[in-house]
Measured scan of single mutants.
Amino acid sequence: EKVLKRMREIKNELLQAQNPSELYLSSKTELQGLIGQLDEVSLEKNPCIREARRRAVIEVQTLITYIDL
């Protein structure tokens, strides 16, 4: 939940920025750090946690791809 919240904050900052190119590098670095945090999530045998992590990774990767474009 914390990762998704921060990812959404970054997305809003990028969309509202007057000059978003200044934010791209720092935002991309922070998003890659969020992916690292998601990699540390213990998936164990809980399919709900596994699915939530998968969705979060996809959302963060989508935003990274947007920045790259």
Rank of each mutant, 00 (worst) to 15 (best):
N19P: 08
Q16I: 12
Y24K: 12
V3L: 15
I58Y: 14
M7G: 02
P47H: 08
S21G: 12
R8L: 12
V3A: 05
R50L: 14
I35Y: 03
G33R: 09
T62Y: 04
L69R: 15
P20G: 06
S27Y: 09
R53K: 11
S21W: 10
D68L: 01
L25I: 02
Y24T: 01
E51F: 05
L34D: 00
R55Y: 04
E13N: 12
T62P: 03
G33K: 10
Y24V: 06
R54I: 03
N19C: 08
Q32D: 04
Q32W: 04
S26Y: 07
E59L: 01
L23H: 03
K45R: 08
A52E: 11
L69E: 15
I49F: 14
K45Q: 11
Q32G: 04
E13S: 06
D39N: 12
L43K: 14
Q32P: 03
G33T: 10
R55D: 08
N19S: 06
G36T: 14
I49K: 11
R54G: 06
L25T: 14
E44Y: 10
I67A: 01
D68R: 02
N12I: 05
C48F: 15
K11L: 02
E44M: 13
E13G: 06
I49H: 06
S42H: 02
V3G: 01
Q61T: 05
E51Y: 04
D39A: 08
T62I: 04
Y24Q: 04
P20D: 10
S21Y: 03
Q37V: 09
Y24A: 08
Q32M: 09
E40H: 04
V41A: 11
L38K: 00
I10F: 00
Q16N: 14
T62Q: 15
S42P: 14
N12Q: 11
S27K: 15
V41P: 12
N46Y: 04
D39L: 08
D39Q: 15
V41D: 14
R55I: 06
L31C: 05
L63H: 01
D39W: 03
Q16R: 11
E44S: 14
D39E: 13
I10H: 00
L69H: 05
Q61M: 08
I64P: 03
E59I: 00
Y66V: 08
E30W: 00
Y24P: 00
A17V: 14
E51A: 05
E59K: 05
E13D: 10
L63A: 03
E44F: 01
Q61S: 11
L43A: 15
I49R: 08
N46T: 14
E9Y: 06
C48M: 10
E30Y: 00
E22Q: 12
E22D: 11
P20K: 05
E30T: 03
V60Y: 03
Y24H: 08
E51T: 05
I58R: 15
L23D: 08
N19M: 06
L38G: 02
A52T: 08
E13R: 09
L63N: 02
G36K: 15
L15K: 10
T65K: 13
K11S: 07
K11I: 04
V60F: 09
V41I: 15
V60M: 11
A56E: 03
I58P: 04
V41W: 07
N12R: 12
R8G: 09
L34Y: 01
P20T: 07
L25D: 07
E40M: 10
R8N: 11
R53V: 15
A52N: 02
K28V: 03
L63Q: 01
I58L: 14
G33Y: 05
P20E: 07
Q37T: 10
R8Q: 09
E40N: 09
P47I: 09
L23Q: 07
E40G: 09
C48E: 15
E44D: 14
L23R: 05
S42D: 15
E22L: 10
Q61H: 02
N12Y: 06
I58Q: 15
N46V: 05
L25Q: 12
V3I: 15
Q37M: 11
L15G: 05
A52V: 08
L43N: 12
C48N: 10
N12L: 11
N19E: 11
E30F: 01
R50G: 11
K11E: 07
K11T: 03
A17G: 04
L15Y: 15
I67K: 01
T29M: 09
V41C: 10
I64Y: 01
Y66S: 09
Q32N: 09
T29N: 06
L38W: 03
E22P: 05
T62S: 14
E51W: 03
V57S: 13
L43D: 14
E44R: 04
E51K: 04
L31R: 00
Q61E: 12
R54L: 09
S26Q: 14
I10S: 02
A56V: 08
I58G: 10
L34I: 05
I64L: 08
S27E: 00
Y24I: 05
E51D: 06
E40T: 06
N19I: 04
E44T: 07
I35S: 02
C48K: 13
T29G: 09
Q16C: 13
S27G: 05
N19T: 06
E22M: 07
E13C: 08
Q61C: 05
E22S: 10
E30V: 01
I64N: 03
I10W: 01
R50V: 09
I35E: 02
K28Q: 03
E40W: 03
I35C: 14
T65L: 04
P47T: 07
D39F: 04
R50N: 11
P20R: 07
E59M: 02
N12P: 01
V60I: 09
P20C: 08
C48Y: 12
E30K: 08
Y24W: 10
L15V: 06
C48T: 15
E51S: 04
V41F: 08
A52K: 13
S27V: 10
T62V: 02
A52S: 09
L38Q: 02
E30A: 02
L43H: 15
V41S: 12
S27I: 14
N12S: 06
L31W: 00
E40K: 11
I35K: 04
T65V: 04
S26W: 03
R55E: 08
S26V: 05
T65R: 14
R50Q: 14
G36H: 02
T65F: 15
L34S: 02
L15W: 04
R54F: 01
N19Q: 09
E59S: 06
K11P: 00
L38C: 08
K28C: 02
T62A: 15
G33D: 12
E13H: 06
E59Y: 01
Y24N: 02
K11Y: 08
Y24S: 00
R8V: 09
T29W: 08
L69Q: 07
I10C: 01
L38R: 00
K45N: 15
I10M: 01
E13W: 00
K45A: 14
Q37K: 07
L43W: 13
R8M: 10
R8D: 08
E13K: 09
T62F: 01
V57E: 13
I64G: 04
L23T: 04
L23E: 03
Q61W: 02
E44C: 12
S42N: 09
V60R: 00
I58V: 13
G33A: 13
Y66Q: 15
Q32H: 06
Q37I: 14
K11D: 00
A56L: 07
I35N: 00
R50H: 06
P47G: 10
L63I: 03
L69I: 09
N46A: 08
T62H: 13
I64F: 01
E40R: 11
L34T: 08
N46L: 06
A52G: 05
E44N: 10
V3T: 03
I58S: 15
Q61R: 07
S27M: 13
E30C: 06
L43P: 15
K45F: 06
L63K: 01
N19L: 08
E30M: 02
L15F: 15
E59R: 03
A52C: 07
G36F: 01
T29P: 00
T65E: 14
R55F: 08
P47L: 08
I64D: 10
L38M: 06
P47Y: 09
E22H: 07
N46E: 13
Y24C: 03
S21I: 00
N46K: 07
V57H: 12
L34W: 01
K45P: 15
S27F: 11
T62E: 15
L25P: 11
L31T: 01
E22Y: 11
S26R: 11
R8S: 14
S26D: 13
E9C: 01
A52D: 13
S26I: 06
E51I: 03
G36W: 07
E59C: 03
